[in-house]
Structure formats: C-alpha cells, structure tokens
Write a protein that binds this DNA or RNA. Structure first.
Lengths: 165, 165
DNA sequence: ATAAACTCTAGTATATAGATAGGGTTTATG
DNA sequence: CATAAACCCTATCTATATACTAGAGTTTAT
C-alpha cells in the first residue's frame, strides 16, 4: 500500500474536519487555508469523500463540509482505502488468499505479503481520527486512553533495522 | 510501500536462483521460462540486482546468474527496497521521523505511518529467501480454506468500498 | 571463428498522479 | 427575486512511472 499525496491531503482534510466537529459546515476554502492544500484539488477529494458518505455537504451560500460520523468512528483505513486502494502491498487481500491457495510455488511469498497487509490493517483499522487529532474538540465526552496504547511522545527511533526506509 | 509487477518479478527470479543455489550460473532464459517472466524485462531486473551486488553474473557462453550470498542471508526487504523503494507507506523512515519532530499538527498521523512502516520492516527484514523456498518445510501457519470461496479466477478488480483490501 | 550469453542504452505505449479550468446548480439573505 | 456565495461536475493538461521491447555491443567457451 502506498499513500499518495492525494491520500495525505484527504487525511489532513478529515483531521481538520474532526478538529472542527459539530461546529457546522466548514468551507473548502477554510480547509485549504488551514491545512495548506491546493483548493481545487481538495474540492475533488471532498467530493469523493462525500460520495463515499464519510462527509456531508451543505450547498449554497454558508455551505461547506462536515463529518458524517464522530471522529472516534472514522478509521484511517477507510480514508486510505477510498483514496489509495487496498492496504496489501500487492493486489488485495482476496487475491492474495486466492494465490496462496492456487499458486503452490509462490505460496510462501504471498503469505508474507498477506502478513504485511494484516499488520497494516491492524494498525490502520484500530486508529481513528479522534486518536490523531491534537483535540480540544467541542466533543462532549473525553476520549479514553487505553493502557496498551501509551502516549508515545518521542519518535520511535529505535526500530528494527538501522535502515531509513 | 507498493510492490510493483517488476518487484514481484525480482522476488520470483531471486527465489528461482535460491532454489538452484550452488548449481552454477543459470541463464536468463531458464529463469524466464521456469518463472514465466518476460525475458527482456527480466534481463533489466537482473542487471539491477547485479549492480546492487545481490547476484553475480558470468558472461559469455555458458554464462548466467547466481546468488552472491546463500538464500538464508538474503532478506526480502533488500530486494523490495532495491526495486520498489522504501517500505514506509509515505516517504521514508527518515522523512517520517523528521516530520514527527517538526510538524506538530500532523505528528500523530506521521507516527501512525511510521508504525506501519516498522511493522512491514519487521516482517520483511526477518524473512529470507531460504524461508520462502522451503517446500512446505517451514510452515509458519496453515491457512484454512473455506469451501465456499474455493475457486476464483482472479479478475483485477477495481477497489471500491470492498472489505477485502 | 563462432555462437552463446550477458551488457547497456534507447525507445514506446499506457496508466497514474497531481493538479487546473470553468461552467452548472443550489441556497442564504437582503 | 436578484445576487453572490458555495458546492457540483466534467474536462483537460503535464509530468512521471510502469511495463515492456529492440538492438547493437562485449565477453567467453569450445
């Protein structure tokens, strides 16, 4: 899975709308300004998000966009899948499972691909917009922090390999 | 990270060479035939693998390619990074760490990207060619096949709101 | 000498990415 | 009810990447 510039814009726009949740409709122009995104391109992205029923639009003067569900119910995986396609590094999960069943000589390779996909899915399906917005939202209820996802303030600099990619 | 067709070809070629390790130089033609890959395209890929010192070539008549190191010392991550670039879903690990340090308003988002990258790296850096040519020997886990999803003729299906990615 | 085989530089067709342009439609508001 | 604000929608454009193909050049076994 590759997250494109467009995918990043979509995530940023959704984060912005999450920060302004239940403040009514937000204009494209304001999203573009606050997140520093190309306005006309953002328009297309928001249209796509609307057609996917992740946001609602209000047309006409005083119009704009707003989240259709609370930030805590919008997973990063939804946004990424919509804009950039499957989370699998090759094909999609169903294709991989099919190849694992049918292609004996590359079975183990496809199993590894599926492992990678599952690892990504696990992270992106369990992270919501509420988890990643700095917040101070007008949301009535506070977000509860789960113990096992301790707030890591420092960057994870000590990871597996020494490589940068 | 996205694995391209070319990346898949590279992995398949390396798996073939691993299966024939220390059987001397293998001709491009034989790799292409056994793995069913376009010969001239494969030629370019092998050249790239050679320049990256992952394989050795023997020129002239009776020439061919062979692995430079034993299969157990060649990680899938090396091959993928060479052909398809960084494992991170966006940018590379160094860029992400820099963004985490500098871009306060998107810090948490980039942290998630880095988590995804680390998860992929963990898998791909710990899996070697020896692990995946194993001929059912090293079976990490069995996939159980459901009967109703048995035969499928894999269409390259466009992604929509599917659950399969 | 010759043919087998890798080496290397180009070229090509198609798709995707990342936008921009502009007219159409809807709606608040005075 | 006129008008401007704002979303809606289709079209177009440029650059780059992807997935190959072609062919001349070089090396080496026999």
């Amino acid at each position: 899975m590759k997250i494109s510039q467009k995918g990043l814009y979509a995530l940023q726009a959704m984060m912005m709308l999450a920060r302004h949740h239940n403040q009514g409709a937000i204009r494209i122009r304001d999203i573009a300004y606050e997140e520093v995104l190309p306005e006309k391109f953002l328009e297309l992205i928001l249209l796509e998000l609307k057609n996917a029923r992740m946001v609602d639009s209000v047309r006409g003067a005083k119009g704009g966009y707003q989240l259709r569900r609370p930030p805590s119910e919008i997973r990063l995986s939804e946004i990424i899948r919509l804009v950039d396609g499957p989370l699998a590094p090759f094909g999609d999960a169903e294709q991989l499972r099919s190849l694992i069943d049918r292609d004996a000589s590359h079975r183990s390779l496809y199993k590894v691909f599926l492992q990678v996909r599952d690892a990504a899915a696990k992270i992106l399906e369990s992270t919501t917009l509420a988890d990643i917005i700095g917040y101070e939202s007008v949301e009535p209820r506070r977000r509860k922090k789960k113990k096992h996802e301790a707030s890591r303030v420092l960057p994870m600099v000590a990871h597996s390999g020494a490589k940068n990619d």
